[in-house]
Structures are given as C-alpha cells and as structure tokens.
Amino acid sequence: MLLFLRAIIVVFAALLICLLGTVYSLIRFKNPSNVGVVARWFGRLHPLFGLKVEHRFPAGAENNGPCIYIGNHQNNYDMVTMAYMVMPRTVSVGKKSLALIPFFGLLYWASGNILLDRDNKSKAHSTMGELAKRINRDKLSIWMFPEGTRSRGRGLLPFKTGAFHAAIAAGVPIVPVCCSNLHHKIDLNRWDNGKVICEMLAPIDTSNYSRENVRELMNHCHAVMKQKIDQLDQELAQQHLG
C-alpha cells in the first residue's frame, strides 16, 4: 500500500516539476541558472522516498566560478539526492536521447543543458573542445558523470576522459561531488530508508595538466572521490551503530 501511494505522489510531483520547470525555462530560455533552480526542486523530493539527505558544501562554494563538477552516478535516485548540489550557472551534459523522454526531455533541453551525440565518438571528442569554449565564453560550469553510466552497486567505476579534457582545455578546476552508497538502501514499502550524505569537495587545480597527462588528473580525481565516498559510508555506518 505504501509503495502504491508513494508511486502516485512521486509521479504527480515529478510531472508537476517538469511542467512548471518547462514553463519557467521557456520564459528564461536556456538561462544558465535554470538547471540549478529546477534541479533543487527535484532535490527536495527526497522525503517522499523515506530518505534523509545531508548536503555539505565547502566554505566559498558559491564563489567557485566556472568549473567542471564531477559526481558519482549510482542510480535514478541521484535525482533526489545529488540534484540539490547543482550550483547556479551550472548545466549538465547528456546524451541526445534524453530529449525524447516525455515531459522531462523538453525540460532538459529548454533549461539549457547540453546534448551530445555519444554514438559518434569522433564528434563527441571535438565537442569537448567546443564545450571548453562555451565554458569561457558564457562563464558556465558543467556537471558531468565521468563514469559514463550508473554504477548500480559496483562501486566507483573507472572514469572516461571527456570531463578532464574539457577542464584542461578551458583552464578551469574540477570540483568533485560525492554521495554515499545508495545501492539496495531504498525500499519504497518502508517508511524510513535512512540517511544519505552528499558532499562537495574543494576544487582540484588543473593548471599543471595537459592532454599528454590527462589520465593522471583523471586517476587523481578518481582516488580523491573513492576515498571520500568510503569515508561517508563509514560515517553513516558508525551513526547507525550509535
């Protein structure tokens, strides 16, 4: 019964956000702050899933300036946990097929997100250069999931290089955003599904990296994020025992 009620409420709330967000985004067509506003609307839905979410931002996060945010991509529940972490003037990069999703697709496009043709690898590589130009021209930040797919309980997957090439080309820092483990923690038939912590880390300088050593930057960011995710999981485990 709880599952059924939740499903109805969540679908209604998501549709409402999509409709209102689309109208809002069409009025401010592709304004770079649209995405952050609508993302935070989705980020406030977490109580409907029986979740408590703690969002942690470092001091001065609002002054990061243009950068590339990278997050760990676990599953569809990222929309109600990590979405609240999206900062003003930040847009995401997604595959073109997202625009075809009913209701959500129009919102995703109108709010100003960037759509890539991921099936065309040569075009996607050149797009990273165009992405870097847009970051500097429009003073944008970009949100990316460098794993390229949902991890679904497999831990932090290996990263792809696109986000790091773009950061180096644009001369902007990388800002990791980490969320504690969500896999198999949400049961929609259960009132209380516990707590999740999402934490934004300090910017990682990219000025000492180039195309030749981009994988060093990628591996460094992967190690930093893995360590933080492990710390968050341990912290929650200790809180549960306490």
Rank of each mutant, 00 (worst) to 15 (best):
L3M: 06
L3F: 04
F4G: 03
L5H: 07
A7P: 01
I8N: 03
F12R: 07
A13T: 05
L16I: 07
C18Y: 07
L19S: 15
L19I: 15
L19C: 15
L20R: 05
L20W: 07
Y24G: 03
Y24E: 08
Y24V: 03
S25W: 05
N31V: 10
P32Y: 10
P32K: 06
V35L: 05
V37K: 09
V37S: 00
V38Q: 00
A39L: 13
W41R: 12
F42A: 07
K52R: 05
K52Q: 06
V53Q: 02
V53L: 11
R56H: 07
G60N: 15
G60A: 12
A61M: 04
A61E: 00
E62K: 11
I68E: 00
I68C: 03
N72V: 08
H73R: 06
H73D: 10
Q74Y: 03
N76Y: 13
T81F: 02
M82G: 07
M87S: 00
P88A: 15
R89A: 10
T90Y: 05
K95Q: 15
S97D: 13
L100A: 03
L100D: 00
I101S: 03
I101E: 08
P102K: 14
L106P: 03
L107S: 02
S111N: 03
N113S: 07
L116C: 05
K121N: 08
S122F: 15
M128L: 11
A132P: 11
K133Q: 12
I135A: 09
I135P: 01
R137S: 05
D138L: 10
D138F: 07
L140V: 09
L140R: 01
S141D: 13
M144S: 08
M144H: 11
F145W: 02
E147W: 12
R152T: 10
G153Y: 11
R154P: 04
R154L: 06
P158V: 10
P158N: 04
P158F: 13
H165C: 08
A166K: 04
I168K: 01
A169I: 07
G171V: 14
G171I: 13
V172W: 07
P176M: 01
C179Q: 07
S180K: 02
I186V: 15
I186N: 03
D187H: 01
D187L: 00
N189S: 12
D192Q: 11
K195M: 14
C198I: 10
E199S: 10
D205M: 08
S210Y: 11
R211C: 13
R215V: 11
M218G: 01
H220I: 10
C221P: 01
C221F: 08
M225S: 08
M225T: 08
K226T: 00
K226S: 02
K228R: 13
I229L: 14
D230M: 09
L232Q: 03
Q234S: 15
Q234V: 11
E235S: 01
E235D: 00
E235H: 05
A237L: 12
Q239F: 12
